[in-house]
Write a protein that binds this DNA or RNA. Sequence first.
DNA 1: ACCTGAACACCGTTCAAGT
DNA 2: ACCTGAACACCGTTCAAGT
Lengths: 206, 206
Amino acid sequence: MARTPFLTPSTIADAALRLGDREGGEAMTMRRIAGELGCDPMALYRHFPDRMALLDAVADLALTAVPSPDPALPWDERLRRVADDIRAAALAHPGIAGHVAARPPLAEQGQRIGAGVFAALGDAGLAPAEATRAAQALVATIAAGLAMAVRAGTRDARWHQVSDVLGGLPSAPPGGELHTVGSEEQFSYTVRLLVAGIRAEAAGSA
Amino acid sequence: MARTPFLTPSTIADAALRLGDREGGEAMTMRRIAGELGCDPMALYRHFPDRMALLDAVADLALTAVPSPDPALPWDERLRRVADDIRAAALAHPGIAGHVAARPPLAEQGQRIGAGVFAALGDAGLAPAEATRAAQALVATIAAGLAMAVRAGTRDARWHQVSDVLGGLPSAPPGGELHTVGSEEQFSYTVRLLVAGIRAEAAGSA
DNA sequence: ACCTGAACACCGTTCAAGT
DNA sequence: ACCTGAACACCGTTCAAGT
């Protein structure tokens, strides 16, 4: 009676995302996802080769909320916005955010967003080969910032020590000025640094 | 007879690192680390509160090979070198490299290296509060590049698709020019972009 | 003080059937 | 074609003893 009539990759990913939202990332086991759907754990293996592939699909699903970069905006604004949007979309689903950070999705949504990033870098004046490298750098940076946010937001107290460690060094600033590790401000700052580097690169090769 | 007389955090971390080097990261379970030492798995809990804390110690141990940045060098050269050195030290121990990337060590070695980074950023002309933010950005970038290298180097075929995906976009470069995801070149390029951004930031606030 | 051993409450995944 | 159920080979960790 607790069984759903259909089982598709999409209904499975939906159920897993829902479960992760409700009970956290560690709850997303094959057994408990199956429980959410009212089916046997093994039924999932008909639609995904293994657990990682299932989580990849959930991660991609979470990125549907990210708008495609608007070509009417300046390229640097587009890059900064897409970074913020990816961060926000991932953190809206804390259960899968860690997976998004650890394995940037390359499925449907990932490719859509990647194309927007690539176009923005082209408009920045980078040649295709440079744009590819810069896109990888940007993906890595977004992933890293997101990973920090995920851990800072959950129970990794170690991350609060980063500020303490740096703050304890000679000539450190008064504590109040520190940006929290994983904060939106710190994320935006890092992306801004990278975008400034891209601008310098584009100017250098122009 | 297969038992070691002493069990200390240091001998445990050594054994775990050795095991990881020999049999890979997944082999570093409490049970198998204990097997390497010839002791009961529960004996490890007398020296570490849980598995994560043990792996943190192993990760920090792997960073002993990273030289402290040489203050005689220009600040940007110092930053680029320490990034390369961290990457090399982590990849020299593939079993723990993923953990270094996922949880940048904050213990003894991490603090030593962090102090060197902070000093270099001060020499770049950044005020302490800015240097703290930039140091966090650099740590995030190194961690992200390292994470890419770890996955590209092991069995995550998905990562080779990144180039394919970007390469399949309109106006993509000829395939041969692409830097492999996770390569040393791509890592250095990303760090270089960030350092260029830091330089721009320092110039702007000078 | 330090280590052990059995047990608890789980995992992902394979395999042989079921309908 | 699609799903099930039992089983395999593991996990991290708690708890009550041992020496």
